[in-house]
């Protein structure tokens, strides 16, 4: 009787052990729980600032001062958004932001593709030096070249116009262009050379074989570069403020991120003239932050698959 019971107990223990820690073939439930738990916790930590931002942005002043209201606002207070949007000139800034990010991105995609193809397809003297230079240009902080470039643009009267972004992009030196050239380089190296050579035997020149064979096959890489370039241009406030906005308060070109960095002062002046219904408090600031990231957030929700799979498909991790 007792012997049977002990055997039974032992058996159960073994089973439990196997269930929790798993065998060599199957993963145990314990490990699964730990992994999921960690992922969910870290996921929450990741989303915490965004959740905090959205929750706070809907609070009114009473909620903010009320210590019993921590997360969920008592009323859906939209006035914050209306005021912040007015102060940032939301729709105009949005449109301008799309142009500021979009045009240089298009140039970036086109030029980086050509250059990447040149590096991947052809062998020529000095290629290694040029590739080294490419990586160096990525490592070099833009602050070193910023001052003479600013002087140059100033002499050419390009500061405060979009040309100060388009021009470098046209010559493959836009924002993070080195990364994009490397992405295209990696990608075109994987395109079978035979295909291009076949086209050349059929009489296509170098340029024609590039346009007709290489470009159509580079869809994933183009999409990746486009998305990343767009996002990075959109989020770049340092150089945008310097070149495109030209550091003047009443410049034509201004985007949401730059507006956000000047938000406090612009809101103060608006409040003084009596246009704002609320005072400057953290709810309004959070509403402004939410407004400035909203366009990209919407874009991300629609295109998330392309973003997430982009790095896989470009083969940046090499073969």
């Amino acid at each position: 009787m007792t012997a049977a019971a002990t055997i039974k107990k032992k058996f159960n223990k073994e089973k439990l052990h196997r269930f929790v820690f798993g065998t060599k073939e199957k993963e145990g439930a314990g490990k699964q729980i730990v992994v999921y738990g960690l992922l969910i916790c870290i996921g929450f930590v990741y989303l915490y600032p965004i959740l905090y931002m959205f929750c706070t942005s809907f609070m009114n002043r009473d909620d903010l001062l009320d210590s019993s209201v921590k997360w969920i606002p008592s009323t859906l207070f939209v006035q914050n958004y209306i005021d912040a949007g007015k102060s940032m000139d939301f729709w105009v800034s949005l449109l301008k932001g799309v142009v500021i990010a979009g045009l240089p991105t298009l140039c970036n995609v086109a030029v980086c593709m050509v250059v990447g193809y040149g590096f991947a397809r052809f062998e020529f003297k000095g290629k290694k030096i040029l590739l080294g230079l490419l990586i160096f240009s990525y490592i070099l902080p833009s602050q070193v070249t910023m001052i003479p470039t600013y002087v140059l643009y100033n002499n050419m009267k390009l500061v405060g116009t979009l040309w100060s972004f388009i021009l470098p992009a046209l010559f493959g030196n836009g924002l993070n262009s080195a990364i994009f050239i490397l992405i295209f380089y990696q990608f075109f190296r994987q395109v079978p050379r035979v295909l291009i050579e076949a086209a050349q035997i059929d009489g296509a020149g170098y340029f024609k074989s590039f346009v007709k064979i290489a470009v159509p096959s580079a869809g994933p890489a183009i999409l990746t570069v486009f998305l990343f370039s767009f996002v990075w241009y959109w989020n770049e406030s340092y150089l945008t403020g310097l070149y495109v906005q030209g550091l003047s308060a009443n410049s034509f070109w201004v985007n949401l991120v730059v507006q956000l960095s000047n938000f406090d002062t612009s809101f103060e002046t608006m409040a003084q003239t009596g246009d704002a219904a609320t005072n400057l408090n953290e709810c309004v600031r959070m509403a402004a932050t939410a407004l400035s990231i909203l366009p990209l957030l919407v874009m991300y929700l629609f295109l998330q698959k392309h973003f997430v799979e982009s790095i896989d498909r470009t083969g940046i991790t090499g073969e």
Partner: peptide, 21 residues
């Protein structure tokens, strides 16, 4: 042909990186 393809970038590097540097 390779140099021709890379040329825009080379010009860019000289004009927007090496020269300002």
């Amino acid at each position: 042909a390779g140099w021709l393809f890379v040329l825009p970038w080379v010009i860019g590097v000289v004009a927007f990186m090496l020269y300002p540097l």
